[in-house]
Amino acid sequence: MQRARVIAEHRSPDRPSIRVSAGDSVTLGERDSDWPQFVWATLAQGLGGWIPAALFDRDTGMATALGDYDTRELATIIGESINVHYEQEGWWWAENAKGESGWIPARAIELIEGDPT
Results as ranks from 00 to 15, higher is better:
Glu95Ser: 09
Ile104Leu: 13
Gln37Gly: 08
Asp34Pro: 11
Pro16Thr: 09
Gly90Leu: 15
Pro52Trp: 15
Leu28Glu: 10
Phe56Met: 06
Gly67Cys: 01
Glu80Val: 10
Thr27Ile: 03
Leu111Ser: 05
Asn96Asp: 14
Trp91Pro: 00
Tyr69Phe: 15
Met1Glu: 11
Glu113His: 05
Thr76Ile: 02
Val20Arg: 12
Leu28Met: 07
Trp103Pro: 01
Ser12Ile: 03
Trp91His: 11
Ala65Trp: 10
Ala108Gly: 08
Thr64Ser: 11
Phe38Gln: 03
Asp32Ala: 00
Pro16Glu: 08
Asn96Glu: 03
Gly90Ile: 15
Gly46Tyr: 00
Gly61His: 06
Ile77Lys: 05
Ile78Asn: 08
Val39Ile: 13
Ala22Arg: 15
Trp50Thr: 10
Ser12His: 03
Gly67Met: 01
Ala8Tyr: 01
Ala106Gly: 02
Gly29Ala: 04
Thr64Asn: 08
Ser33Asn: 05
Thr71Val: 02
Gly114His: 09
Ala63Phe: 04
Gly29Trp: 02
Phe38Ser: 01
Ile109Trp: 10
Leu55Asn: 12
Ala4Gln: 07
Thr117Phe: 10
Ala108Gln: 12
Asp57Asn: 15
Arg3Phe: 13
Met62Glu: 11
Arg107Cys: 10
Glu80Leu: 01
Val20Cys: 05
Gln2Trp: 10
Gly114Glu: 09
Arg5Gln: 08
Leu28Lys: 15
Ser81Arg: 14
Asn83Tyr: 14
Gln88Arg: 15
Pro116Gln: 10
Ala8Gly: 09
Asp57Ile: 03
Trp91Ser: 03
Glu89Ser: 08
Asn83Trp: 15
Asn83Glu: 13
